[in-house]
Design a protein around this nucleic acid. Structure first.
Lengths: 126, 126
DNA sequence: CGGTATCCTTGTGGATACTG
DNA sequence: CAGTATCCACAAGGATACCG
């Protein structure tokens, strides 16, 4: 690393590219709706409307937008059944499932520390 | 649950309150800057300026704002040393450390699937 | 039913300047 | 050095309407 810091070598450039990509993925994934969608899917296959019902408070627009993003990153697979009315199903891919496991950890954490956090908030606000 | 669904009993109300609180915490924590701050802190104690240097691209405003939020939720502890120039140090609390562990999982996931995601994106965009 | 496009309101977040 | 406040540009996101 140090010996190459002024060379602008391909290796250095690759590292910087990988870093910025990682940061980008991080931003995509670390958002409320994306996490809730992945949690809602779990191991099931769900239709668009079912997801909309599962996730309280999500708008039509946010759901499509985030589903496209997740599909683009290869975390969900989208299947369109050519029938009327249209039937579109979503399911987590293997990378998506792996991500879900870490998100489960986040959910567990949230519920475990719910009490701590609530009292901390009251102390801070008062 | 079912037997109580029209009673508006305290139990039901408590559950709804806990749910909305959990959702709130989820929104607080599931944001790019909060996660990056927690990762940067790790097991170390860092000053405000050090954090600013660690986290590339974070603005003064976002850093203070997120640090206040994390402090309010009891995830970081803020220590002000009464000297001039002021010295303010931040360190993760026990709940904060526990959260960091799950975030580490997210980081691992990101790096493991970096390749998958990049190729998936190219396929999608083309 | 699911997707896209449009409008419009709100919020997010950067830049800057000033304080202890 | 760290925090707060103000201003402002722009992106996020809701509501609505229309298409396949």
């Amino acid at each position: 690393m140090v010996t190459k810091q002024f060379t602008g070598s391909p290796d250095e450039a690759d590292l910087r590219r990988a870093d910025s990509l990682a940061r980008e993925i991080f931003s995509d994934v670390a958002n409320k709706w994306a996490l809730l969608i992945i949690e809602a899917l779990g191991e099931r296959t769900l239709r668009f409307g079912e997801l909309r019902n599962e996730i309280e408070g999500i708008s039509h627009k946010m759901l499509t937008q985030n589903l496209r993003m997740l599909e683009r990153n290869g975390l969900v697979e989208r299947t369109v059944h050519p029938v009327v009315p249209p039937r579109v199903e979503y399911v987590l891919t293997e990378p998506g499932q792996a991500l879900r496991v870490t998100i489960d950890g986040l959910c567990d954490w949230t519920h475990r520390y719910l009490g701590h956090i609530e009292t901390s908030r009251h102390r801070f606000d008062g």
